[in-house]
Amino acid sequence: MNKKFLILVIALQILVLIFMSAEREFILLFGKNVRLRTVPVDPYDPFRGEFVALNYDISFIQLDIIKDPTIDIESFNSPFYVLLKENEDGIWDIKNCSLTKPPNSELFIRGRIDRHSYYNDKYLHLKYGIEKFFVQQGKGLEIEKKARDKGNIRIPLEVNVAIGNSGIAVAKSMEWSPIGVGVEVLERPQLRNLSGRNERNSNSEMEPPIRKSPKIKLTLKNCSEKVLGIIILPDYASFELLSSERSTKNFIFRKTLNQNIKIQDSDLKLLKPQEKIDVIFDLADPRWFVKNKKNEYVEIGDISNDSWGNMIRIRYKSPLRKECNHLKHADITWYGTLKSPNVSVSGNID
């Protein structure tokens, strides 16, 4: 037996551990800090303990925004660089992406193509190696409970991430978003038979019209401990409907965001802690119509009768801070974007 070989192996084991930790420690100390929005769930790993599994907003990337023609979306596990841009609320979002390492003047995060979205081939699912946040046993469940608030409100988590020069990310800490968002289905579409005709006799003039698309209530809640202002522009100008990355069908909505509106003090709603504001979305309203195969705008319920697979989300977007400086409560107003949980066209909430 060779003592020197034994000493070498022991030293190697220690060096492996030191190398693994030193690389991440260096990023924590000297990396650039960004904040990413995510949704938590809480599982358990027998070796590393309890963790909060994180599904970042930047985990799904729409194939349309991939401008680099060299990107082979089938090359799973190949390195993938996502350039980031900062939003008004301090949350970082996808700016662009590349298969080659971008210059260091850009802030980018390194990920790997995990798979296509399970549900929709218009999206790619990326992994950045920060999808697990390890917590003391018992706290994962607490986090999950808080994330779902008491009712149907979901409070997003914001994860502070340090990013090294090579794009390696290290999750540092988590914070709750000050605004929670929830949806409730007020009226569900009524079931139709396979031929797509209404079950009831459509010839009967006495019958009320059958609902084909859901009516949804979106709730924004102040989950912080201080008063916050929320700007809700008239004519739904602060909202847009999106096809969910989990939807089997990709919807293109007629109405897009239009915020070229002069913002007034009356548009700003002050919310005390725990106070909510509701906005109703009736998807039968022509403004929420979607494009069909003939490029005509039709009611979403006309082209989708799938009970779970076809999902949408409502996105709230506040005006930019610089556009609101003239407002009385501009300083306590929340600026940023929020996505609702997924709602299926048949009226189920994910």
Binding site: I10, L17, M20, S21, R24, F134, V170
Partner: peptide, 26 residues
């Protein structure tokens, strides 16, 4: 015991730095 500590060290580093790279590599 030392070898088990080595394994423990790998998982601890992964836990401390919230590493979620391909974990079977550990």
């Amino acid at each position: 015991l030392g070898t088990m500590f080595f394994g423990g060290g790998i998982w601890l580093v992964a836990q401390v730095y919230n590493i979620d790279e391909h974990y079977p590599n550990g």
